[in-house]
Write a protein that binds this DNA or RNA. Structure first.
Length: 796
RNA sequence: GGGCGAUUAGCUCAGCUGGUCAGAGCGUCUGUUUUACACACAGAAGGUCGCAGGUUCGAGCCCUGCAUCGCCCACCA
């Protein structure tokens, strides 16, 4: 966040200065205010000096990315390549004879940047290119400036592209610069730092670079040297800060050497990039002798990381911006040498002169960000916290800054601490607007989180962000999903209110005791068993960073199983004031949900626990904040397959009655006389079925003969049948049609299962459990089919 | 030019190590003042899981190719 703020400040520096000026605030004051605090500043200086001492930081006059808009150097990462529609201009360079006079021959080159013609110092062709072999060694005249330059051979030339001949501009193109170095060519600076042309540009001097381009093209055309201009789409570098077209040009800047080997250690030869690669690919042995490997989630990012590091170039770290850490280097006015120091020096370290001046440049904002894992822990002064918090376990950030930030934290962590900064990097996706567009200042489609928080609540925003997508995938910030998250928070709040309303002031409820399970009602055992499954499953998911899936499971459990079923069934006992109170299960299941959900919805859960809800006061030993209570652990003490099966049947029966009601258009409020053909053991669930299905009178009968068969709707389940007398509402044709449809489905299922179980290969190669499940499914399907057929026979 | 991701109900998206996984929310439709919640409850309709092959007893899930969209990297002027 700090870094983002600093970037923002940097982008807006001119405006802030102007504002302050208008307010009568001195520029010095402004500059001072926007200086980083001394802690991290010391870390930055210490690292700078250490890198410099190892020869990993150097100053050099090199071709760098220059932004004429910001008037600053940029690193490779700050240049965005965007496709631009332009032209490929084919230009004739007259061949000269030995005396330096024009001949009738030409070499035609293709260029996208005619304005750089004035800085050409050669024309290059591929050495194997038969078309040009004879020309190598001769000279051509550069148009516009009439400079004679040689035709040289170089492997870097692609004979297929353009005419196969390249104008070489070492001063303004990275490839050309390398060619220039190989052939000892002169480097000419034709473009100023403000984007205008230099004196070297001759007639075009002082023109803006794009104006100069037009002027040169016009002049070439006039001189008959322009062969053609071809529409051409190609990538052009833009400044990621201001959008200006970036200009490669020669400039004296500071660099960090990425691949230079500066020593050797227990992990072999050391270099910044090499070490960062090693820590992720094969692991890093720290000072404690333990090998630790940095793992990324989603894993695919490691390949991107690796690819970047394997092709990395030195990092240009000096910026000509106002804010940021100033480079801790002083130049001597007397002996001209440099003093590199942590503390501001009084005099030159070499000759003792007092005439020293600090470098005006600031550091790339990501240079200090790279130190974040340890500079925030007090390094280099107070290293106490470092012992406990370095390395940390998980670094969480967006995948868009994997190079800018993550890779550099790893480099600097290994350099300064000789230990990885973190073991896991968890990358979240990009949050887009509701149209799926990336949020950006220029588009103005940014969504202010504060507004969303006002509208839906902080918990809803957080829950939405964590659960709305897959791990590491981008997601849209859309309102319907925000509403759903808010509704869930509301659901949790209301369910809690209900539970709390059942408790007397100061009433303390003991936790359910597994050793008493025999005497507990099936629904209690059921919900506790389900809770345990949820705990086990969500913990497993969280360990794999499947945070969204875990949260969704919690929501589903709380809403569907706890609220819609358990709570409603528990109300019966609460109303009747049963001896076996559901309160222990109600209170402790809710408490467990609060703990599970706390990371997802910290505010509501805490409010229920220790705030106005004060659930903790009803729990033995309940004290402190929710965050202080232990997170639920996965155990199996409450696992109860029998209870789950039993309640599964109850739920099915209730749904069956509701379906009959719906299918016949019977008022939801009307009580329906209902027979359930099932084992007598089901009788104890009669009150629940009665209440939830509004089935009264309800009769549990042992066999189909005990229920009426005339004018009844029948729902056939595997382990039960539901019979609802309809009297006047009964429609025998509708009933037959419905049952026929169900029979077809059941038959299809039976056939498919039978076929699978008859397949010898399936039986031998499928896991035992799958085969067993299939057999059980077949049995259930057959039983259901038999029931349906019997009922159809009755109706015939 | 390389690499990666996406393509699943009208919309936005989940689907872990291949075995009922075809799901959720929203939307639509039908009902409901059932005393925690209408930011709710009950129910319904809706998808040949981009296309074509392949592996397997079995494939949204694995392999190959193709198509469309998006992102990242990149010194073909």
């Amino acid at each position: 966040f700090l870094e983002r703020t600093w970037q923002f400040v940097n982008r807006n520096r001119a405006r802030i200065f102007e504002q302050h000026k208008r307010l009568g605030i001195s520029a010095d004051w402004t500059r001072e205010r926007f200086t980083m605090d001394p802690g991290p500043a010391r870390a930055v200086r210490k690292i700078f000096v250490a890198l410099y001492d190892k020869g990993l930081i150097y100053r050099g006059n090199r071709l760098i990315n220059w932004c004429p808009g910001c008037r600053s150097a940029l690193s490779d990462l700050e240049v965005d390549h965007e496709d631009v529609d332009s032209f490929l201009w084919y230009v004739r360079y007259p061949l000269l004879d030995d005396e330096g006079r024009d001949t009738n021959e030409y070499v035609t080159i293709a260029t996208t940047r005619p304005e750089t013609i004035v800085a050409d110092t050669a024309v290059a062709v591929h050495p194997q290119d038969s078309r040009y072999r004879a020309l190598v060694g001769r000279r051509v005249r550069v148009p516009a400036v009439d400079r004679p330059v040689p035709v040289i051979p170089d492997e870097a030339i692609d004979p297929e592209f353009g005419t196969g001949a390249l104008k070489v501009t070492p001063g303004h193109d990275p490839v050309d610069f390398e060619i220039g170095e190989r052939h000892g060519l002169e480097t000419i600076n034709a473009i100023n730092i403000d984007g205008t042309m230099t004196e070297e540009a001759g007639p075009y001097a002082a023109m803006d670079r794009f104006e100069a381009r037009k002027a040169i093209v016009a002049d070439l055309k006039a001189q008959g040297l322009l062969v053609k201009e071809e529409p051409y789409r190609h990538a052009v570098g833009h400044c990621d800060r201001c959008g200006s077209v970036v200009e490669p040009l020669m400039s004296e800047q500071w660099f960090v050497a990425m691949t230079k080997v500066y020593g050797t250690g227990r992990n072999g030869p050391r270099s910044l990039a090499g070490d960062a690669l090693k820590a992720v690919i094969e692991g890093w042995v720290g000072p404690d002798g333990v090998r630790k490997q940095i793992k990324m989630v989603p894993e695919r990012h490691t390949k991107v990381y690796q690819n970047w590091l394997e092709n990395i170039r030195d990092w240009c770290i000096s910026r000509q911006l106002w804010w940021g850490h100033r480079i801790p280097v002083w130049y001597c006015g007397s002996c001209a040498r440099m003093t590199v120091a942590m503390e501001d020096p009084e005099r030159c370290a070499h000759c003792g002169s007092g005439h020293i001046r600090q470098d005006e440049d600031t550091l790339d904002t990501w240079f200090s960000s790279a130190l974040w894992p340890f500079s925030t822990l007090g390094w280099p002064d107070d290293t106490e916290d470092l012992r406990y918090f370095y390395p940390t376990s998980v670094m969480e950030t967006g995948y868009d800054i994997i190079f800018l930030w993550v890779a550099r934290m790893i480099m600097m962590g290994l350099f300064a601490m000789d230990e990885i900064p973190f073991e896991w990097v968890y990358f979240h996706g990009t949050v887009r607007d509701d149209q799926g567009q990336r949020m950006s200042k220029s588009k103005g489609n940014g969504v202010d989180p504060e507004v969303l928080i006002d509208r839906y609540g902080a918990d809803a925003l957080r829950f939405k962000l964590v659960t709305a997508g897959g791990t590491g995938n981008d997601q849209r910030l859309e309102e319907p999903r925000m509403e759903a998250a808010r509704n869930f928070a509301n659901k949790l709040w209301n369910a809690s209110r209900f539970v709390l309303s059942q408790l007397g002031p100061g009433q303390v409820v003991e936790a359910p005791d597994p050793s008493n399970r025999e005497s507990m009602p099936a629904e209690d055992r059921w919900i506790l068993s389900r809770l345990e499954r949820l705990t086990e499953s969500s913990l497993r998911l969280m360990e794999r960073f499947e945070l969204g899936e875990a949260g969704r499971e919690m929501e589903e459990f709380l809403w569907d199983e706890f609220c819609d079923w358990y709570l409603e069934i528990a109300k019966i006992r609460l109303r009747q004031g049963d001896e076996a109170s559901p309160l222990p299960v109600l209170v402790h299941t809710l408490a467990a949900c609060l703990r599970l959900l706390h990371p997802y919805m910290p505010y509501v859960t805490e409010e229920i626990w220790s705030g106005s809800g004060d659930l903790r006061s009803h729990i033995p030993g309940g004290d402190g904040l929710l965050i202080e209570t232990p997170y639920p652990e996965a155990t199996a003490v409450w696992r109860d397959e029998a209870a789950e099966r039993e309640m599964g049947l109850v739920l099915e029966i209730v749904r069956a009655v509701r379906n009959v009601r719906r299918e016949r258009g019977i008022d939801a409020g009307r009580w329906l006389e209902t027979y359930v053909v099932a084992d007598a053991a089901l009788t104890k669930h009669a009150p629940a079925i009665e209440a939830l299905a509004r089935a009264r009178p309800l009769r549990i009968v042992p066999s189909r003969e005990d229920a009426p068969s005339e004018s009844v709707a029948t729902a056939v389940l595997a382990d039960a049948q539901v019979v609802v007398p309809l009297a006047g509402l009964f429609d025998v044709n509708a009933e037959r049609a419905k049952l026929a449809k169900e029979r077809d489905q059941a038959q299809a299922q039976v056939r498919s299962l039978e076929a699978q179980l008859a397949n010898q290969k399936f039986l031998t190669s499928a896991p035992e459990k799958v085969v067993r499940d299939r057999r059980e499914q077949l049995e259930a399907a057959r039983s259901k089919l038999a029931g349906i057929e019997a009922r159809l026979a009755e109706l015939a």
